[in-house]
Simulated assay, not measured.
Amino acid sequence: MSKKNEYNAIEKLAIIQELKAGQSSRVEVAKKHNISVTTLVKWRHRYELYGIEGLEIHSHTRSYSAELKLQAA
């Protein structure tokens, strides 16, 4: 399937709008853009809940200060 984070938010939105246009099925749209149907459905759901911000790529790597680490210990 696709590489992780291959599409930016604007591209994801264009794919979602293609799906909403109703001219192709989920399977057809997913194949055309080399993504899974599951990914397509997740994008659509996040867009409906959070708008374009929900489609942004977020880094899950967080850094914590030494002080915070000590408080947690």
Rank of each mutant, 00 (worst) to 15 (best):
S63E: 13
A72I: 12
A66D: 15
Y64Q: 11
R62F: 11
N5K: 10
K42S: 07
K31T: 04
Y47C: 00
H60W: 08
I10R: 13
K42T: 07
K20F: 08
T39W: 05
I16Q: 06
S59Y: 05
R62C: 09
Y47P: 04
K69W: 11
L13F: 04
L70G: 13
A72E: 08
G51H: 04
K69V: 10
R26W: 11
L40V: 06
R44H: 10
S2G: 11
H58D: 08
I35D: 03
R46T: 01
K4L: 08
N8K: 09
E67D: 11
W43K: 02
K69R: 15
M1C: 13
K69Y: 08
K32L: 06
Y7F: 12
Q71E: 15
H33T: 06
K42L: 10
K4R: 15
Q17E: 12
I52P: 00
Q71S: 09
Q71F: 13
S36P: 07
V27K: 15
E67H: 12
A72K: 14
T38V: 10
E56V: 08
H60L: 14
H60N: 15
E53T: 02
A30D: 02
V41Q: 07
A14Q: 08
I15C: 00
E11T: 04
L68I: 14
E28G: 04
E18S: 05
H45Y: 14
I10F: 12
K69S: 11
K3S: 09
A72T: 09
V27C: 10
E53L: 11
L40A: 04
E6R: 14
V27D: 14
I57S: 09
S2W: 10
G51T: 02
A72Q: 13
